[in-house]
Design a protein around this nucleic acid. Structure first.
Lengths: 240, 240
DNA sequence: CGCAAAATATGATTTATGTCATATGGGCTG
DNA sequence: CAGCCCATATGACATAAATCATATTTTGCG
């Protein structure tokens, strides 16, 4: 295995910080983050942490994409969250001082920073503004998770797939010609199935149907949304 | 409609407080809660709040039981949470200053206190210990919700029902003779279906099967768990 | 107390989705 | 650049669960 090169990325000048939780930290706090921070390149497939292990710090994506997931007793994977540049992951276990209850694996390579637990908790405890911000984030996460639960519990696989495509379009959409939007994230059909909670074959089949209905187009792995309104109709609601 | 009688229940002496979030507030904070608090009896079927409305305070159950649920666009109900004596509900919307994104309805009558938003937020903002406690609670809620999502997404209805019965046994179990445990909460088969995310008939059928397997016994609405280990086997894991 | 309405129970049938099998294609590695 | 492997694709079939229908029992109400 090659030696991992530590990349120098300053939180104070990190472009990904723009809309992250760190976005309104003051200069001192941001500089204190840099002191013990490490920042390395991760390749696709590398795992940041495993469910059941103890968090020692906070991961912050400077670039790349990560999936956060749980594995059931019978070996099935359920993706709980996707993270992209600017996103934190693993903060909940850190805050509540528990073991991770999900795993995180890189799905698109990128630079990921790691802030030691002590530094993160120090800011959390000494900066009430940041503490509040974190609390707000947890509230948001909870709301999102509740909505996902309802969708998975009450909607058909077809509806969930349509809703998921719309959600992915929001988060990863690249505008193309003729109103088409490329979903710019390297998700396999299996990953997609593991977001929705269904079988890989079912996703493949339904994507084919959506293609035949000219709601989407498929160029290999990547999916392009042609008719978002049509998908909204299929989803019978908006947002998974 | 009868006039609602305001019951005098002091937070400082509330028996239900024992294991609530208020359990380690100091005397002054507890007394400040009492000043503007109201406490009235709610009957089965009464709704505490509706999704989409603005929270004006915090509900705290002195007694009785409440279901918290969302209604989908096509009118199906998904129960997110059940609350009993000592439980708070609606704190997330209050903290994040948003509209409720679920509704709450009484399923067993009881006395429910209502603490105005300002009083709750005042304690939250002035008592860092309580703030921390709240944050911890949100973390726990999030973990629970994630686990529920995984279960609903990846487990069969049969497994989910078994898991739900075990969960209900933990929260509402009354030990009876011969190792049997009565699940002491007035849930209809429909409610049960709306926890699990399935059709009422399916719940009824599966309960019959579990009865035939002598895992449970049915006396009208109420369910008695006879063989928890058998249910664990059916659930293939523990805890929904 | 008796009736109506709702909840529970069970059967018959349909359907969406899972599973298994096999073919095809794209991309990575030596 | 070739070959292999994994992802995608599609078909055939199995099945869990939804839906619709109809008893039967329980509950609440006047």
């Amino acid at each position: 295995m090659a030696t991992k090169k530590n990349i120098k990325i300053s939180c104070a000048f990190c472009a990904s910080k723009k809309d992250s939780l760190f976005s309104d930290l003051n200069k001192d706090d941001l500089e204190s983050l840099d002191i013990h921070k490490s920042c390395i390149m991760y390749k696709k497939g590398q795992t940041l942490y495993y469910e059941g292990t103890r968090p020692m710090g906070l991961f912050c994506l400077n670039s790349g994409k990560v999936k956060v997931y749980k594995i059931t007793s019978d070996g099935k994977e359920q993706i709980l969250n996707l993270a992209k540049a600017g996103d934190f992951i693993g903060y909940r276990a850190l805050i509540s001082e528990e073991f991770y209850n999900a795993s995180a694996t890189v799905i698109e390579e990128g630079a990921i920073c790691y802030i030691p637990k002590a530094d993160f908790l120090s800011i959390l405890n000494n900066n009430p503004r940041f503490f509040k911000r974190m609390m707000q984030r947890l509230c948001d996460d909870l709301g999102i998770m509740e909505q996902k639960l309802v969708t998975i519990a009450q909607k058909s696989v077809r509806e969930r797939l349509a809703a998921t495509l719309l959600m992915l379009k929001e988060s990863y959409g690249l505008e193309g010609e003729e109103n088409s939007t490329l979903i710019d994230i390297a998700l396999s059909r299996e990953d997609l199935a593991n977001i929705i909670g269904t079988a890989t074959e079912t996703v493949i089949r339904l994507l084919s149907e959506f293609k035949n209905q000219e709601l989407i187009s498929l160029q290999g792995k990547k999916i392009k949304v042609l008719d978002p309104q049509g998908l909204v109709k299929e989803a019978d609601f908006y947002g998974i």
